[in-house]
């Protein structure tokens, strides 16, 4: 049984960051599984999941990454998964919905929506926001499995929220977006 570790890295973006980090993992006999990375305002952030022999420790991995020769400092955080922790399976669960929010930019939009989700025990899987020409746009991927109210009622509450906050808030099932944007029919 190999040991699973979750590694998060943040750094000023430059060519070769992924090569450096995955190189350090490879030298320790690690095997990279899932990896996500994004660049925002010139900064790169990356989160990945890798497996190692039982003998490799968090400290070994920290040391290997800190020995990488680079001009920019890596901020690294490593968590070791306990043997009981299950790795997420691929594909979103049945109750995955996409929420979109559009409106003129103002303070507190992201907080307001995320608080709304929290108030209804909705988990946010993924969130992307953009600001263009004074218009703020958010797209959230939500898991409604543990939501505290039925879908019809939630849609009504979102309508009220839209009106009260001068935002256009829409929520549709994730499947709609998949079938209209992907070739494969699941």
């Amino acid at each position: 049984m190999r040991k699973q570790m979750i590694i998060s890295v943040m750094s000023k973006d430059r060519p070769g960051i992924i090569a450096s980090i995955t190189g350090a993992i490879y030298k320790l006999g690690g095997d990279v599984a899932d990896l996500n990375q994004t660049v925002l305002c010139g900064y790169l952030t990356m989160i990945l999941n890798a497996s190692f022999e039982e003998s490799v420790t968090k400290e070994d991995l920290h040391a290997a990454i800190s020995h990488i020769k680079t001009n920019c400092k890596f901020e690294v955080s490593i968590k070791e998964l306990a043997s009981g922790d299950t790795l997420e399976t691929s594909g979103p669960p049945e109750d995955t919905y996409i929420l979109t929010v559009q409106g003129p930019n103002k303070g507190g939009i992201v907080h307001g929506i995320s608080q709304f989700c929290f108030d209804h025990n909705i988990n946010i899987f993924d969130l992307a926001t953009t600001l263009k020409d004074g218009q703020y746009t958010m797209a959230l991927q939500l898991d409604l499995k543990t939501c505290t109210c039925p879908i019809g009622e939630l849609q009504q509450k979102l309508e009220t929220y839209s009106a009260e906050n001068d935002l256009t808030v829409m929520m549709q099932h994730n499947d709609i977006f998949q079938v209209t944007n992907e070739i494969t029919l699941h």
Binding site: T100, A128, A139, Q141, M170, Q172, I176, Q178, T180, N181
Partner: peptide, 16 residues
């Protein structure tokens, strides 16, 4: 997740 522009074009199609 899909790109935001793909999401928004689908939302427009349904709502407007």
């Amino acid at each position: 997740m899909l790109r935001s522009d793909q999401i928004l074009s689908t939302v427009e199609m349904i709502q407007k």
